[in-house]
């Protein structure tokens, strides 16, 4: 589904991604973790071309990002993305947030978009809030709406960029529940997260990044059993210590 092949990226003279190679198959849930500044967020943003890269190749569902003929907006419409800071559009009601891209990008009729949006809103347990504005919801609620917004485009894969790290601790659970449910339904997912409980529960594979490199790319059992690299061991012991 996603093939990342030897991707390198520089900010001026600083290299932020070095020879990253991995893939995500259909139905697979891959968790990307690593210390802050390791390049994991940058990597996930290159997958739908939000961040350009200078070296290597990425293809999504067989479509190469670098190809000049690729219609990026069309491709992005099929890749759902959830951001650390939710990024709901503050001037639009929840319903309008859910229908804007359906109408403008997928050209769905308004009624159909609305029905689809409200169905997903119900799925994340927020039907009662359809008429409200983002500023009137809690962080956890906003992030659940953001997930519903991404799902409303019927994505073939979902990207999560630290979806719970901007949340107050008591709201992390409600967002993770939605994500777990999504994983169990067979959605292809790539998640940058520190939530190792989530990784243990639903991930197939875990990728560990440090200083722009993929240091470890292993099956979940293997990763939590005995990671091969000392850096990953160190990271795990720190994060699991408490």
């Amino acid at each position: 589904m996603i093939a990342i092949d030897g991707v390198g990226k520089w900010y001026g003279p600083v290299q932020v991604l070095k020879g990253c190679t991995t893939q995500v198959s259909k139905g697979e849930v891959v968790v990307v973790c690593g210390p802050s500044g390791s390049g994991k967020s940058t990597l996930i943003k290159t997958v739908n071309a939000l961040e350009p890269f200078q070296e290597g190749a990425i293809s999504v569902d067989g479509i190469a990002l670098k190809d000049k003929r690729t219609d990026l907006p069309k491709l992005r419409a099929r890749v759902g993305m959830v951001f650390q800071h939710f990024e709901l559009f503050p001037h639009l009601s929840i319903t309008d947030n859910l229908t804007l891209a359906q109408c403008k990008v997928l050209k769905r009729p308004r009624e159909e978009a609305r029905t689809r949006g409200l169905k997903l809103l119900e799925r994340v347990g927020l039907s009662a809030h359809a008429q409200k504005f983002p500023g009137q919801l809690s962080g956890g609620q906003q992030q659940r709406v953001a997930i519903a917004r991404a799902l409303s485009m019927d994505p073939i894969v979902m990207l999560f960029d630290e979806p719970t790290s901007a949340l107050d601790p008591e709201m992390v659970g409600e967002v993770l529940d939605v994500m777990v449910q999504l994983a169990r339904e067979g959605m292809t997912m790539m998640c940058v997260t520190h939530e190792m409980g989530f990784a243990r529960k639903v991930a197939n594979r875990v990728i560990f990044m440090d200083r722009g490199e993929i240091v470890e790319d292993a099956q979940k059992e293997e990763f939590f059993g005995q990671p091969r690299s000392p850096r990953a061991q160190q990271f795990l012991s720190k994060i699991l210590a408490h």
Partner: peptide
């Protein structure tokens, strides 16, 4: 900055991003 990224990630093109998301805010 995420507002623009979110609009683009949903597949909106540049014109739509400005027209429906960035300018109204």
């Amino acid at each position: 900055r995420g507002q623009r990224a979110a609009a683009i990630a949903l597949g909106l093109n540049t014109w739509q991003t400005y027209r429906y998301v960035l300018l109204p805010i």
